[in-house]
Design a protein around this nucleic acid. Sequence first.
DNA 1: CATGAATGAGAATTCATTCAT
DNA 2: TATGAATGAATTCTCATTCAT
Lengths: 169, 169, 169, 169
Amino acid sequence: MVEKGIHDTPMSAIAKAAGTGMGTIYNYFPNKNVLINEIYTSIKKQEQSLFVNFDSSKPFRTQFEDYFTITVTFFIDNPEYFQFMEQLQASPIITQESKEEGRKSIAPVYELLMIGKQQRIIKDIAIEEILMFIGGAVFSYLRWYFSQTEKQNTSLKNQMALVWDGIKE
Amino acid sequence: MVEKGIHDTPMSAIAKAAGTGMGTIYNYFPNKNVLINEIYTSIKKQEQSLFVNFDSSKPFRTQFEDYFTITVTFFIDNPEYFQFMEQLQASPIITQESKEEGRKSIAPVYELLMIGKQQRIIKDIAIEEILMFIGGAVFSYLRWYFSQTEKQNTSLKNQMALVWDGIKE
Amino acid sequence: MVEKGIHDTPMSAIAKAAGTGMGTIYNYFPNKNVLINEIYTSIKKQEQSLFVNFDSSKPFRTQFEDYFTITVTFFIDNPEYFQFMEQLQASPIITQESKEEGRKSIAPVYELLMIGKQQRIIKDIAIEEILMFIGGAVFSYLRWYFSQTEKQNTSLKNQMALVWDGIKE
Amino acid sequence: MVEKGIHDTPMSAIAKAAGTGMGTIYNYFPNKNVLINEIYTSIKKQEQSLFVNFDSSKPFRTQFEDYFTITVTFFIDNPEYFQFMEQLQASPIITQESKEEGRKSIAPVYELLMIGKQQRIIKDIAIEEILMFIGGAVFSYLRWYFSQTEKQNTSLKNQMALVWDGIKE
DNA sequence: CATGAATGAGAATTCATTCAT
DNA sequence: TATGAATGAATTCTCATTCAT
């Protein structure tokens, strides 16, 4: 689905890939756009679930790095999710509602950054802006990672350094 | 074209928006995908043209900030270009060739970063990786900028600080 | 379909005539040209099926006349087949493969003529040439037959005499 | 034009092949169908012109063979005319008027056959029918001739024998 | 519930024809 | 008069969606 682009993947192909019939999909999703939005929020929820038992007793930087690493690893382990997100992040197909919903996945990071700001560990910049920055860095890194023919994720440390040095006070 | 997504904008609508007939478009572009790729490379070329008479005598950091500012400004001035790029950057429609072509637009930045690395002004990380990081930051910022209802680009300085602190040695 | 010419009959009209939706046709034939080729070979196969239980114990001339009569009758009974074949016989739409396939329909006649030649009943001329001659005569006759306002197929005997006297030793 | 089929040859290609502009064609022919009909009648007229100074003092059979040979030779020398005629003979594009017009080209043959019938040299069959038969034989032969990879028109004699033996009393 | 063949609205594309130059 | 770029009606083809099984 994701290799040829969501738009160039007919429902028949999606059904086939899902090992089911087309009609079955329509028993669960009223139309293709809803399906896509559901996949979107589903991925976001999976992302979110990674942070549920997050240890807030750890040092701030460790928590930050954990978050970063976990997120990157999640998409490296699920490359098709990455491709999906890349294609749809900016797509008008994704409704405002889904985006809203998706934003929840980063609620823990939001919390974390709030604390970081309060404790003057990180810069005093609008959290939304920092979130965008971090999110952008995650995806930049993944983009770079997947563009490599010989995957070498040793550089994850580099990337985290880039981001950390950027946001830290 | 860009509001509803390239895919959901029929050629007839594109023609209309261009103030021409559908057939006329096909006199210049063999098909829709080629047209999209041409728009892509055309935007990239415009981006590139902004750096032609770049003053390499200025301090490194100034050059970096100039680059950053110019790019951001370019897309703020051409919001439809931003939307187009956002949607297509990761799309399978854009051919490897177009991407290759587009990469040329960042050649000057590549040069700049090379020097920065040699002079140990910036971190010793693969330039490709730094480029992705910077590119990601530019787009994160723009994403944030356009998501604001009341545009306030004072924060550009913040963003540049984020990126600079990230990459500097 | 056949009255206005295959080219001037849109798929929508074909679908309508077939009592089905356009999309359905595309579920069975990838495109219009393939559809046309399939109709072509299908007619050829029907033609072929007329000779399956051909009685080779009958005199040569009888067999020849049977073949001629059966073929002519087949097209008189299916005038739209005749029109179709007339239009497409020489069309570049019909692939070499379809022609090859279609040639099978005359295999029995080929056999018959071989024997006729061996037994010196018919002229010693390349069989391919004789086949063309006979085929041409069949279609000439049909052309003439359908051009008549008052159909009188008594003249079939005339036509067979023309051809027979032509090919006989 | 004739290789890909008249229908699949756009006016632009015709103009190019004619070494002129598209507009120019429309200065002489109101539309494509008229153009095709004009080409049709033009070929027919050229065919006709071959028989203008036909020597009616020669023996009947000689005249017949001359006619046959001249016609075949005409199309062998102008293979694109043959292809054109093959494709259009049965096409609904050719108007009744053009066909009427074209029939004039065979007027001399009609005359000849009349005489042949009167003198009981050829069979007492409707001349229209004999004409179709001869015409069919001419085209069958040409079809066969052009299908050969190594052209050998020695067999023209064979073909004429086929036809002559067919029609002679 | 599951299925996938049938469907037709809608999209991409073609090309005969026009008309400004 | 010659031209060919511009045009949009018409055509091919796709695919989301439905619904009979």
